Simulated assay, not measured.
Amino acid sequence: MNQTLALYTKLTKKNEKLGRAAFSAAFALKAPYFRTITPVVKTMEPHRGVVAIKKWWGVQNHIGTVHAIAIANGMEMAMGLLAEATVPKGMRWIPKGIQLDYVAKTPGDVECVAETSPEDWAKEPPFTVDVRMTGRMVKDGTVAVQGIIPIYVSAKK
Rank of each mutant, 00 (worst) to 15 (best):
A22Y: 04
G49W: 08
G80A: 15
A28H: 01
I151C: 08
S24W: 00
D120S: 14
K89F: 04
M133H: 02
K156N: 10
Y8H: 07
F127T: 11
R136P: 00
N2E: 07
K13F: 12
P95Q: 03
T43M: 08
T12A: 02
K96D: 14
F34A: 05
Y152K: 12
M91G: 02
A85P: 04
E119H: 14
V59K: 03
T65N: 13
K123H: 10
N2T: 08
P118T: 07
D101E: 14
I63W: 09
A25W: 08
L5A: 00
V143L: 05
K89S: 11
A78S: 11
D140T: 11
S154Y: 02
P150C: 07
H67M: 00
A68M: 02
N73Q: 04
K30R: 13
R92C: 13
Y102F: 15
T128W: 10
I148W: 11
S154N: 00
E76S: 13
W121S: 03
M77Q: 04
K13P: 09
N61C: 00
R92T: 13
G141P: 02
L82R: 07
P107N: 09
V129I: 15
L100Q: 06
A155N: 11
A114M: 11
Q3E: 15
I98H: 03
G64V: 07
E16H: 04
A85V: 00
F34I: 06
T43R: 09
G49T: 01
D109M: 05
T36K: 09
K123S: 04
M1L: 12
V129D: 08
A70I: 00
V41L: 06
V59H: 01
P39M: 05
Q60S: 14
V103S: 12
T36V: 03
V138Y: 10
R48P: 01
K17A: 14
T142Q: 13
Q60F: 05
A25E: 06
A68Q: 01
K30T: 10
I149L: 06
M75L: 13
G108Y: 07
A26N: 01
F23E: 03
A52N: 09
P88M: 07
L81R: 03
G147R: 00
E76W: 08
K42T: 08
N2Q: 08
N73C: 10
I149K: 01
P39G: 00
G19I: 00
W121H: 12
T128I: 12
V153A: 06
H47V: 02
R35N: 13
T65D: 12
T9Y: 00
I148C: 05
E76F: 12
S24L: 06
G58C: 09
F34Q: 07
G80K: 09
K89T: 13
K17Q: 15
A52C: 11
F27Y: 09
P126A: 02
I151N: 01
T36N: 11
M79K: 15
L18Q: 14
